[in-house]
Design a protein around this nucleic acid. Sequence first.
DNA 1: CTCCAGGTTATAC
DNA 2: GTATAACATGGA
Length: 217
Amino acid sequence: MRAAVDACRGLRLLRQEPWECLASFICSSTKQIVQIRQIVRELAGAFGEPVAAPADRGPLHAFPGPAALASAGEAALRACRLGFRAPYLLDAAERVVDGRLDLEAVGRMPTVEAREALMSVDGVGPKVADCVLLFAYGRQDAFPIDVWVRRALAELYFPKARRLRPERLARFSTVHFGPYGGYAQQYLFHHIRLRAGRVGPTPTARVTPTGGSEDGR
DNA sequence: CTCCAGGTTATAC
DNA sequence: GTATAACATGGA
């Protein structure tokens, strides 16, 4: 993996606030990263509290809390280009508001339980749950397998395989990469996207999952 | 126009 | 158990 490592020195894993992370990744399914960032910005602009911003930037808004989104209603969420993900995000917000999902308690659970708790939300499957575990809760063994990581694994580790079941890749990732698999996942992600020309070859290595909560220009 | 995008779910063999 | 379509929206 030397090529990937060389092209990405200084890579870090984020520790995002759990709700923002969960909500952002719920918005992420079958969306391009640039569009996910757009959705997050729209949600912040529509429902988030203003925060202090430099004069040369546009108005900044914090990512809206679960209560703000729960009371927004599905139609208002759809207006932020969420499409079929709107009811998913709404379900997540309502669960957090009424306590069925306690994001603080999730942080104290063993990883397997935490994963199940996250996946109780409609629209949260294995990949999104693993992203939240890795990017919000710091579970460095979490190994989110998205379309890019799947390609990287298939190409680098199973070049002969005709068809790779998700469960097969999941099992391989845990036994092969172990407790710091999350870092390996990030390098694989960056490597395969770099090679595909989807990201510039800058060595800044700022691999951001969804973009954060800024609403500026 | 067709295909794909940091997936998940419902439905049918 | 496994396979496939549908889900909104926008960009390539």
